[in-house]
Simulated assay, not measured.
Amino acid sequence: MAFQIDLKTFTDSRGNLTVIEKIVPFDVKRIFYIYGVNDAIRGGHRHHNTRQAAICLQGSCEIYNHDGNKEDTFLLNVPHNCLILEPKDWHQMYNFTSDAILMVLASEYFDAQDYIYEPYTK
């Protein structure tokens, strides 16, 4: 099941510095980011192998998640909050604010065969 982790952040008079080191539970092989989203729904899949870490660097969005047993909705609205998605987590991203930038770290290189588009039956 998907779960959230808080990223270590250092704050002082100069601003904030958030560190992603030894906290994501996989080796990162790919990084992508989603921005400029209108009212569209992104995602709509799960994976055979890929684990992901989603961080909304700016703005906010929501991620609906279903792992075959449990459904949850996560609000990502601070850049030090990270949502870990397991391969079995069928997810959709939506309600992006106009300034949202969602960065995703992935455990695998892109492979179209890794995607499963059929949602779980409720």
Score class of each variant (00 low, 15 high):
residue 67 D to M: 05
residue 95 N to H: 13
residue 78 V to R: 15
residue 94 Y to Q: 12
residue 74 F to A: 00
residue 98 S to I: 05
residue 80 H to E: 12
residue 86 E to F: 10
residue 69 N to T: 02
residue 82 C to F: 11
residue 66 H to K: 13
residue 62 E to G: 00
residue 63 I to Q: 07
residue 95 N to A: 14
residue 81 N to E: 08
residue 76 L to C: 12
residue 63 I to Y: 01
residue 83 L to P: 00
residue 81 N to F: 03
residue 80 H to A: 06
residue 71 E to A: 03
residue 62 E to F: 00
residue 97 T to W: 07
residue 98 S to H: 11
residue 73 T to Y: 01
residue 68 G to F: 12
residue 69 N to G: 09
residue 94 Y to A: 07
residue 83 L to Q: 05
residue 86 E to T: 10
residue 93 M to R: 08
residue 66 H to N: 15
residue 96 F to G: 07
residue 90 W to Q: 05
residue 92 Q to C: 13
residue 74 F to Y: 10
residue 96 F to V: 02
residue 74 F to W: 02
residue 67 D to S: 03
residue 62 E to M: 00
residue 83 L to W: 00
residue 95 N to S: 14
residue 68 G to H: 11
residue 84 I to Q: 05
residue 83 L to M: 05
residue 82 C to D: 02
residue 72 D to H: 13
residue 69 N to M: 02
residue 95 N to T: 12
residue 67 D to F: 11
residue 74 F to G: 01
residue 67 D to A: 07
residue 67 D to V: 07
residue 69 N to A: 05
residue 68 G to N: 12
residue 67 D to T: 12
residue 86 E to W: 04
residue 63 I to V: 15
residue 90 W to I: 06
residue 89 D to I: 03
residue 70 K to E: 03
residue 72 D to P: 06
residue 80 H to W: 10
residue 78 V to H: 15
residue 72 D to Q: 14
residue 91 H to Y: 02
residue 80 H to I: 10
residue 74 F to T: 01
residue 98 S to D: 12
residue 71 E to I: 12
residue 83 L to S: 04
residue 73 T to L: 03
residue 90 W to L: 03
residue 88 K to W: 00
residue 79 P to S: 14
residue 81 N to C: 09
residue 93 M to H: 02
residue 84 I to H: 05
residue 76 L to T: 14
residue 83 L to H: 01
residue 91 H to C: 04
residue 64 Y to K: 06
residue 79 P to M: 07
residue 94 Y to T: 07
residue 76 L to A: 12
residue 74 F to L: 04
residue 81 N to S: 15
residue 88 K to P: 00
residue 89 D to W: 02
residue 77 N to R: 12
residue 98 S to P: 11
residue 90 W to S: 03
residue 90 W to K: 07
residue 89 D to T: 09
residue 75 L to H: 01
residue 98 S to R: 04
residue 76 L to Q: 08
residue 86 E to P: 04
residue 64 Y to E: 14
residue 93 M to L: 09
residue 72 D to S: 15
residue 79 P to W: 03
residue 72 D to M: 13
residue 83 L to Y: 05
residue 82 C to I: 10
residue 85 L to W: 02
residue 71 E to N: 09
residue 80 H to G: 04
residue 78 V to T: 15
residue 79 P to C: 07
residue 76 L to G: 06
residue 85 L to V: 04
residue 89 D to Q: 14
residue 73 T to P: 10
residue 86 E to I: 05
residue 71 E to C: 06
residue 80 H to T: 13
residue 89 D to L: 08
residue 70 K to R: 06
residue 96 F to K: 10
residue 97 T to S: 15
residue 69 N to E: 11
residue 67 D to Y: 11
residue 93 M to N: 01
residue 87 P to I: 06
residue 77 N to Y: 09
residue 68 G to A: 08
residue 92 Q to K: 15
residue 79 P to N: 15
residue 93 M to I: 10
residue 97 T to A: 08
residue 94 Y to D: 13
residue 74 F to M: 08
residue 74 F to V: 01
residue 64 Y to C: 01
residue 85 L to N: 06
residue 62 E to D: 05
residue 64 Y to D: 08
residue 64 Y to P: 01
residue 98 S to G: 04
residue 95 N to L: 10
residue 90 W to R: 03
residue 67 D to E: 14
residue 65 N to S: 11
residue 91 H to N: 13
residue 95 N to C: 13
residue 86 E to A: 14
residue 74 F to R: 04
residue 92 Q to A: 11
residue 66 H to P: 02
